[in-house]
Amino acid sequence: MKKTILAVDDSRTMREMIRAALESADFEVALAEDGEDGLSALERTEPDGIVTDINMPRLDGFGFIEKVREQEAYRTTPILVLSTESGPELKQRAREGGATGWIVKPFDRDKLVSVLDRLIG
């Protein structure tokens, strides 16, 4: 069965890039435009893994990750941050919220895919 990845990013360009990368690796891809949108997409898409941006309107990546982790069903779902930021303090903050990993944009397609493969199986 195909694994579903929920990609959350407020940039349409980024969403399309992530979608293209993941679909080419045979993932099912669901998209959301910000944290709030991502939360409401959880139920609908039941993702096996989540890729999220940090800087987003309404609910940013940090808040999104925390809210996801609050839900029993997603306590252990891998969440990968995909961000142009790379500051250690930001990464630490994401980790504390429950993020599984952090990849710096612009991302390398193969890297993203191999990480997800490893995290999701």
Binding site: T76, T77, P78, A99, T100, G121
Partner: peptide, 9 residues
């Protein structure tokens, strides 16, 4: 585990 890591994977 809390961060979605999975040893078996």
């Amino acid at each position: 585990y809390r961060r979605g890591g999975e040893p078996t994977l």
